[in-house]
Design a binder for these strands. Structure first.
Lengths: 195, 195
DNA sequence: ATAGTTTCTTAACCTGGTTCAAGGTCTTCG
DNA sequence: CGAAGACCTTGAACCAGGTTAAGAAACTAT
């Protein structure tokens, strides 16, 4: 079961050096789990108990609006952290739903353990500071793209940036992530084929 | 000049307790400055030397696309931190421009001093971790709003959420921030008046 | 005051993207 | 296998919001 953690640990080592007792403490807090394709990991209205790290497979987080339309706010592939941050940190009911798009292995980090981790090994404050900082930049870029690029350009950029996602993600969710309808994505794809 | 720092220090104290020598070290790193309305604080193509904290007044950060259209990505009021995070942390040329919308007082935290601060007082890792974490949640909410709400709803929400911004910000920048044209904002406002 | 600049509004017309409805394809599972 | 469901595509009608261009207000600076 140790091999589960190796990729994550080497990823963390890029930001902060951990000695073996620190690594051991950290990994002791993680709860490995398997989730099957289609299975729910987080549900709307339920407080998110865990921060989630994806070891393999692919998860998707979406928001369901009053008109019952789903809007994908993020995909999470191997090596990514995901989940409803607000629900997790404030321990309030989640406004998102997270599901597996493929059979996946994940590591759950429960809220109380996250708090202990940050208290006992302050270096992890740095790790998550950098994680959130980078994520913030990504989110800003996404906002800009939505304002300044057409649906077609956004789709092209998406294919370039996340080529590996196509294998897991149904087109309708890609359309949702990019902010338009599946029907319009069909039109875009047809135009591309004709070129 | 000490009074400049009091609001910021008490804000920080909400997250992390600082003793007086820590406070003194922190404030010794900050460079107070005045910027006049319309003045540039950060420019496209120039590496951002400072993280910026607004003491009073109002700043605006925007992205200029290939078609020379500006897209406002954030406003910053008293008590907010702002600037191009990516340019600042990676020390690469900025893709944004930041300007003062009103005469403002700001505190600059130069990159090398930020690094020293985080090294010498690791509690600040926690402070910025929480800052970025909250900002991330705000950005996610904004993305969702853009996808699931109409221009009119976004404007209503904006007025509710940032009532104090109206006094500083020309309508055309509010339209830009919300992702539509000033002309369309006029239509929305007219419809509102008629009700 | 007055000229110049920037901002805001109006109106006519246009288009990227949506909606709805139907048909085609691909999975999955009894 | 065959049927049910999920997904993808097509086309026609429609609409939210964009574009262009002009004038009206509101600031500035002489």
């Amino acid at each position: 079961m140790n091999s589960d953690f190796s990729a994550l640990l080497s990823n963390i080592a890029k930001q902060i050096p951990l000695d073996s007792s620190e690594s051991a403490f950290f990994t002791s807090l993680l709860r490995p789990a398997h989730v099957k394709q289609g299975e729910f990991v987080e549900k709307f209205g339920v407080t998110t108990p865990n921060f989630i790290h994806v070891v393999s497979g692919c998860l998707m987080t979406y928001y369901t609006d009053k008109a019952a339309n789903d809007h994908v706010i993020q995909f999470a592939m191997a090596g990514w952290w995901t989940g409803d941050l607000h629900s997790f940190t404030e321990q309030v009911p989640s406004i998102y739903t997270t599901r597996a798009l493929a059979d996946s292995e994940v590591l759950y980090l429960p809220k109380t353990d996250m708090d202990r981790l940050l208290e006992q090994i302050p270096k992890f404050e740095r790790f998550f500071r950098i994680l959130f900082q980078n994520s913030l930049v990504t989110h800003q870029n996404r906002i800009i793209q939505n304002f300044s690029a057409s649906a077609e350009e956004r789709y092209e950029n998406f294919l370039q940036k996340y080529p590996s996602l196509e294998q897991y993600v149904p087109l309708k969710y890609i359309a949702s992530y990019l902010g338009f309808t599946p029907e319009f994505l069909s039109k875009i794809r047809r135009k591309r084929m004709e070129r």
